[in-house]
Nucleic acid binder design. Structure first.
Lengths: 344, 344
DNA sequence: ATGAAATGCTAAAACCTTTTATCACTTGAG
DNA sequence: CTCAAGTGATAAAAGGTTTTAGCATTTCAT
């Protein structure tokens, strides 16, 4: 990183001086604007490169009214959801010179307001709001801002642009995978019913089974998996041959409980999870077949939408559902095993 | 958020116009600089508040050469370590109007360079480098930057300022907890020896046992926990009465394996982990007693150091070790149980 | 040879704020 | 009554960039 003799970063003034041209000519040459002699242009560019000139984004932003930075507001201090999404946003934008301010509000309205004010003062080109839960509202009013707002893993008002995982499609993917492996008595053990995502997954599960099926709602966490398994094994009805879980944690609890009861996964009962939370899914024994919500892709999409918005391009408002993916590990048997089971 | 009639954000010009004073007077009044009549000052302030004036940080930064933003560069896409630290940094700085750019490099040198250039262009006041591993070097050269660099959960060159968890003290905490509960044959099952943190924890473990003890190095993950337990249970020597694990994941594997072998935790063997990674530690059965590295506090400290550096205050270079904390859950028995065991 | 058009460059304004130097005016002391 | 000091306000410069309008100069067609 070169600097001029007086220690500061090289400015376009230094370039102009060294090239023996005016500041405007230097600017024109570097940006390909106006009428410039090819020879002059090359000379200026060469000198700029030599002394390591890079335009001051503050000055540029002041003039263009675009700071090339956006704010991301999250209530997540833990990181499981936010960081993959932020990485996706950032990845989509860094090639366009846009950087991302990350603001963790910790669910504190005061902090949220403080962060928002700082972002607006810094003239961010837009704001992406993210939550740990689809149906969680921001702690500050984002509806009357003079800049575009995009919701990622959150649902904004109808007129806004939102990106959320396609829970419906994801749940269908899970159930259809089980069906394709020949399972018919599929149970759904999931989280609390007041979560929007939980209700959607349950609805899709029922739809995939033609309206049949049984859903057990409960708290998040492994304990509920244990508890739910205990309940179904101590009742008379026929046992399920597969369990679709609303989260990887629940699935892990379920699998551990099944083992404790002497049942083997996947040969006695197949299990599929939801989240593809690596630390849980990969470490479960057997490793968990589960649904990946594509958070990084979701972030990337949100970032691209933001880019269009800041460039004045029209973006369709409403909710964009990002497709989930099935990640096959061992807890349902492999696809091959499934095939042979079908053909036998 | 009020705006002027022409739609843009209110500027100090609007304030001056509305108050019937010059721009300089308005600025002086708002900032308490220069000589200003008390009555004028109040009037200007009142009007500024009324029309919702907030100074443009870009213009201000251009003049003061302080952008009131810093960059945070991480190679972590997963978030377990980075987000708590970022939240800590952000929390320490938001009250001073400083915002944080988060840059996930995904371990890609090209991306790292791109991010760094964008940060420098935006005139960030400093950069905090973070890694998922203490002994991981940045993918770009940070040693010749014109702005201060702080290392968080990473060790920079001698002349720089670094913050890392006190692995030594943390490991001692774990071993001493086990000793205080009456355990004497304490085994250490941990990660790969080429990790700096692993070697430190192992050294502290040995030191706490007066140079005795046995360390089993292996890969991270639960599998290694299973494998290690299998080894020690199939050999003739006397069994350990406690196991100190180098990570919560390993600890979970250990506990599960012990249960599989018919041993009970904590009554047969006590187990303590390292990380306090909530999803693992809280869900393990029994819930894991473990060491918390205080990542948020580490981030806060790094943020405060950065604040001092950007204000030209001297900051001692070198490595700052942040104290770990013991989090008691159930896998060693409770402290009370320990007390009664000692007194019996 | 002459007017029009094209070419290459530059001065100046604009973005918004803070600070410095300066001006006009009042007050108080001698 | 005069001079010095103090008071309250302001014009202008500075920070770094881009863009607009304009100025010479050259080229070309007539």
């Amino acid at each position: 990183m070169m600097t001029t003799s007086h220690g500061r970063r090289a400015t376009i003034r230094d370039v102009a001086l060294a090239a023996g041209v005016s500041i405007s000519t230097a600017s024109n040459a570097l940006n390909g604007q106006g009428r410039t002699n090819a020879e002059t242009r090359d000379r200026v560019k060469h000198i700029a490169e030599k002394i390591g000139f890079r335009p001051n984004a503050l000055a540029r932003g002041l003039l263009s009214r675009r700071s090339h930075s956006i704010g991301m507001i999250t209530n997540d201090t833990y990181g499981r959801l936010t960081l993959p999404m932020t990485a996706g946003v950032s990845e989509a934008l860094v090639d366009h010179g846009v950087s991302v301010f990350l603001c963790a509000t910790n669910n504190d309205p005061r902090l949220a307001r403080l962060h928002l004010e700082a972002l607006l003062d810094k003239q961010v080109d837009g704001i992406i709001f993210t939550a740990t839960r689809l149906d969680l509202a921001p702690q500050v009013d984002l509806s009357r801002l003079p800049i575009p707002v995009v919701y990622a893993f959150a649902e904004g008002p109808d007129t806004s642009v939102s990106f959320v995982p396609d829970d419906h499609q994801g749940a269908r993917l899970a159930v259809e995978h089980l069906l394709s492996l020949g399972h018919r008595r599929i149970l759904h053990i999931t989280g609390p019913e007041d979560f929007a995502a939980v209700r959607r997954r349950a609805a899709a599960y029922r739809a995939s089974l033609g309206g049949e099926g049984e859903v057990m709602f409960g708290p998040w966490g492994e304990d509920w998996g244990h508890e739910a398994v205990h309940r179904i094994l101590t009742r008379p009805e026929p046992r399920p041959d597969a369990i679709f879980c609303g989260s990887d944690e629940t699935a892990r609890g379920v699998i551990d409980a099944l083992r404790d009861h002497g049942l083997s996964v996947p040969s006695d009962i197949a299990v599929v999870g939801f989240d593809n939370w690596h630390v849980v899914a990969a470490q479960t024994r057997p490793a968990l077949t589960t649904i990946d919500m594509g958070l990084k892709e979701l972030g990337r999409r949100a970032g691209l939408a933001m880019l269009d918005l800041t460039q004045g391009k029209p973006v369709a408002s409403g909710i964009n559902y990002i497709a989930c993916e099935l990640v096959v590990r061992a807890s349902c048997g492999t696809d091959l095993a499934g095939q042979s089971l079908m053909s036998s």
